Computed example of a mutant assay.
Amino acid sequence: MGFFFHIGRYFSMLKRVFARPEKHKLYIRQLFHEIDNLGVNSVGIVIIISVFIGGIMTIQFAYSMANPLYPVELVGLGTRDTLLLEFSSTMLALIMAGKVGSNITSEIGTMRVTEQIDSLEIMGVNSASYLILPKIIAVVFVFPFLYIISVFFGLLGGMVTGPIAGVISIPDYISGIQWLFYPYYITFSLIKSLFFGFLVASVPAYFGYYVQGGALEVGKASTKAVVNTNILILFFDLILTRLLLT
């Protein structure tokens, strides 16, 4: 019963979120603020993680395929396809759920327990739409760009790490990332990024919007938001992979 209760209340919140805004100028101003706060401020950590993961995957693929029967191009191909299909979309979304999701839950949850949301409702403002809609649009908008940045710097990390570790030369690595390339992989992962961006913004917002109590409860809500968002990301990753890669 608790599961269906949360599902019903979640969709009820979304209905309010996507109601017609009262003042478009306020929403646009808030949207740019959220893009900067939730998106631009996440670029640094995305680059750092992607560079190291790209380098790690290149070394691991090189050692797992250290067989003269395997073409050396498989190292670059494996790194490329892992970044394109899974890491830069799904794994990055799991990481961003911890950073962005906890931020959203704590911000909205703090407003709830300090009665700021009640004040907005008294003034006739649709608090769900004003507080949550710009966050959803901002995260959904920036996630595909973060995906592209992650793929680029992941491949760059592999290209730098491979020769330094002595496992592959730059020409062989570049040849590998060009070998058997399917552009649909990018389309597939961009679609996943849009879904994951919506989950990363809306699920934590739900837990923050309906939190009750004080600072301790806000902290617990942030933990629940990250855990549930990660579970939903993995669930929809399975569904979308089954639907889009068959």
Rank of each mutant, 00 (worst) to 15 (best):
I137S: 11
V151H: 09
L133G: 15
A19T: 05
D237A: 11
A93E: 03
D118F: 15
V167C: 14
P71Q: 10
Q60G: 11
G158N: 08
L92K: 02
R29E: 14
Q178I: 01
Q116Y: 13
M123F: 13
A138K: 03
M111Y: 11
G98L: 01
G2A: 13
M13G: 03
L14M: 03
T187L: 11
V51Y: 09
T246C: 12
F141D: 10
F207R: 13
V142E: 06
P21T: 13
I48D: 12
T246G: 12
E217D: 14
S50M: 05
G197H: 01
F198P: 00
I47Q: 00
V226A: 04
M123Q: 11
Q178M: 03
T105C: 06
L199W: 06
I191W: 00
L38H: 06
G98E: 00
A201Q: 09
L84S: 07
Y173G: 07
E86F: 00
P134H: 12
L120V: 13
M123W: 14
E86D: 01
S189G: 03
I104R: 02
H6V: 13
I170Y: 15
K224L: 14
G219C: 06
G213Y: 03
T223K: 14
T105A: 04
S42T: 07
F3R: 01
Y10H: 11
A225R: 08
G39V: 07
Q30S: 08
L131M: 07
G8P: 11
I122F: 13
G154A: 06
L146D: 01
F5R: 15
G76M: 04
T229G: 05
G109T: 05
Y185V: 10
A201S: 08
Y185E: 11
I49T: 04
F198D: 01
Y147M: 07
L146F: 00
G213S: 07
V227Y: 05
F188P: 08
V227S: 03
F235L: 07
L85V: 02
P144G: 01
Y182M: 12
G78R: 09
E86S: 00
L199S: 03
V139H: 06
Q60V: 11
E217S: 14
G197T: 00
T79P: 10
V40T: 08
S169M: 12
G166R: 05
I233C: 00
N230Q: 11
I186V: 06
N126W: 05
I231S: 04
I239E: 05
G219P: 07
V160M: 09
S42Y: 04
D81F: 05
